[in-house]
Design a binder for these strands. Sequence first.
DNA 1: ATTCAAATGCAACTAAGTTGCATTTGAATC
DNA 2: GATTCAAATGCAACTTAGTTGCATTTGAAT
Lengths: 142, 142
Amino acid sequence: MPTAKSTLSTSDLIRATGVKVTPARMRVLELLNGAGRPLSHSDIESALVARPIDRVTLYRVLDSLVASALALKAVDTRGVYHYSAAAAHHRHSNHVHFHCTGCGGSFCLDAKPPSAPKLPRGFQLSAIAFELRGKCKSCISG
Amino acid sequence: MPTAKSTLSTSDLIRATGVKVTPARMRVLELLNGAGRPLSHSDIESALVARPIDRVTLYRVLDSLVASALALKAVDTRGVYHYSAAAAHHRHSNHVHFHCTGCGGSFCLDAKPPSAPKLPRGFQLSAIAFELRGKCKSCISG
DNA sequence: ATTCAAATGCAACTAAGTTGCATTTGAATC
DNA sequence: GATTCAAATGCAACTTAGTTGCATTTGAAT
Ligand SMILES: [Mn+2]
Ligand SMILES: [Mn+2]
Ligand SMILES: [Zn+2]
Ligand SMILES: [Zn+2]
C-alpha cells in the first residue's frame, strides 16, 4: 500500500495546476524552493549550468510558474525580476524584510507588515509592498 | 534693488548643488516639477521631442539630478526607472499611494505611511517603501 | 578674453526580456 | 506498447533599458 504523504511532491504540485510536468519546470521549482532568497533569471541560469536550460525556455518556465501561482515575481531596486517559490514565500509573509543596497542581501526582521489603509470606494487591492532599504551591518563596517 | 523671492528658481536650485546650470538640466528639472507623476527616461524623451536631448545625456542629467538630491529615482513593477522632482515628491511624502496595475495611475490616499520597525544593530536605513497595488475604480467598472 | 573641468554627442556595447517558427515531448487515448 | 497532438522546447533574431569610451563643446571662474 502507498505511504500516506503530508507534503505534496514537486511533480504533484505542478501537475495539479494543469500544466505538463517537464524537467525544466521540476528543476526550476525545486531550486526556488531550496533557495533562501528570490532568484533572478541569471541566478537561476548560473545555478543550472551543469545541464543548461535554454534562456528563453527558462523565461517561459518562470512565467508559467508565476501564472500558476507556484512562484512569485518581484522587481528589485536595479530593475531586475526576482522569483521565489510560493511555498517559500509564504514562510516570509508574516514579517517584513530589509534589503541591503550594498550586497543585495535580504534580511528577515522581527516585525509584522503594516495593515492596509482604507481605500477609496470601488478600488480593489491585490498587493501590499512594505520594503525597507539601506545598508546592512557588514556593508557599513566592512 | 532685486525683488525678494520666496521660491528658488530652477537655475538657483541647480547652481546651489554645485553643478553647472545647463539647458538640459533646466528643461528636465522643470519637466519633472510640472509632472504629476514619476516619469521614465522614455516619457521624458517624448516630452522633449521639440528640441531633443541626446539619450545618453538625458541619462546623465537624470543621474546628476538624483546625485544632487533634486530628483528621486524609483523602479516600477515593469523594471523601469521613474524619476520625480524632490520638491514634487515631498508634497506626497506624508501620505501613501495606490498604484493601479491596469492604467498605471497613482492615487493619493488619506493615510500616513507606516513608521519603520526596529532594525538589527548596525543596520542603516535609507528608504522605506509602502506601496499598495491593485485596480482602480474605473479599471474595474470600465 | 583665456582657461579648463564639467557637460555633451555619438558610436558601440551590455544585459534583460520578447517574438516567431520549426522541432520535440508529455500524457491522454487507443 | 503504439498513435496522436497540444504544449513545451531550442534557436535565431529582435527590442528596450541602460552603460562606456572618447573626442568636442561649453559654463563659469579668473
Ligand atoms: Mn523572511
Ligand atoms: Mn500623493
Ligand atoms: Zn549588505
Ligand atoms: Zn486604473
